[in-house]
Amino acid sequence: MRKYIDILTRRNTRQGAWGFPLLVFLGICVWLSFNTARFATIENAENLIAQAMPLIIVAIGQMLVVLVGGLDLSVGAVISFTTAILSLDAPTIVLLPVVFVLAALVGLMNGLVVTRCNVHPIIATLAMQYMLLGATRLIRPVSGGEIPQLVLDSVSGEFFGIPFPVFWGIVVVLIAWKLLYRSRYGLHLFAIGGGMASGQTDAAHNFGIAVRRNIVLAYVGSACFATIAGIFLAGRITSGDPNVGLLFELDSITAVALGGTQLSGGVGSLQGTVIGALVLALMSNGMNLVNLSPFVQTVVKGGILLIVVGLQSRKKMGL
C-alpha cells in the first residue's frame, strides 16, 4: 500500500506530485457528468477549454518563476495591461509586437530588481503590479475600445470542428515543453531551484550555471506567457478591460501548487501545472453548473489554496 501511495504522491522526484490532482480531475469529471445534465456536452467542453486556457497559459509562466524559488504577483496586471494596449487605436502589425516587447521589459525589470538589487521577489513584483495597474487605468479607465480583428478571429473560429482555443493550448504547451524538457535552460532552472530549496543557494553557480541570467529569463518568460493569456482574453471579451486580470496571480499560484510544484523551488512539472489549472477551471465550471454564488466560489478557491499549500513541506519559515 505504502508503495502505491509513494507512487501517487511521487515523493523525492523532480516532477512533483501530479498523480493526485489527476485523480481529483477525473473524479470531478465523473461526478459532474453523473450529477448535472449539461456537463457532458460538447458545448460545455468547448466552454470549459476556453475558460481554462488563460489560466493554463499564465500558470505555465508562473511555474517558471516558482521553479527558481520566486513568485510573480504581477501576472494579473500584465494581463490587464495587455488588453488595454491591444484596445488602442493602432494597426495590428504594430500592437502585437509592442505588447510582447512591453511584457519582456516588465519581466526584465522584475528579474533585474530581484537578482541585482537583492529585493524579495514578492515585493519586487508587487510594486510592479501597482505600477502596471496604474498605467493600465491611465490608458483605459473603464473597459472599452476595439480589439484587432486578427486577435478576435484567432480565438473564436474552428478548424475541422476543433475550436481554435485548443490550438492555442497545444502551441503554448509545446513551447513550454521544449523550454523545460528539451533545452539546457530548463535543466538549469531545475538545478537553480533545487539549490534554493535545499538552502545551498550557490550550488548551481558552482556548477557553472549563469544563475542570475537564468532567473531574469524566468521572469521574462512569466511576463510573456501572461501577455499571451492577455491576448487570448482580449479576443474573448472583445475589449480592453482594466480589471480582467484581477486575482489571476492568486489563481495561477493555486494552479501551480495544486499541480505538485513546490513553492520553495526545484520540483515541478508541466503536466502537473496543466492539470492543476484544469482542476481549478473545472471547479469553477462545476460550481457555475450547480449555481453556487460567485462569492462562495471565491471562498472555496481560497480554501483550496490554503489546503494545497499547507500540505507542502518546507524548511524556511516566513515569506
Partner: peptide
C-alpha cells in the same frame, strides 16, 4: 500557526485568508 508550524509561505496564507474573509462578507 500556519506560518510557524506548517511553514507555509506567509504571503499565500494571509492572502488566501483575506480572500476567504472578503468572499464570506460579500456572500
Amino acid at each position: 500557526w500556519m506560518i510557524a508550524k506548517r511553514r507555509v509561505s506567509a504571503v499565500i496564507v494571509t492572502l488566501a485568508v483575506s480572500i476567504i474573509l472578503i468572499g464570506m462578507v460579500q456572500f
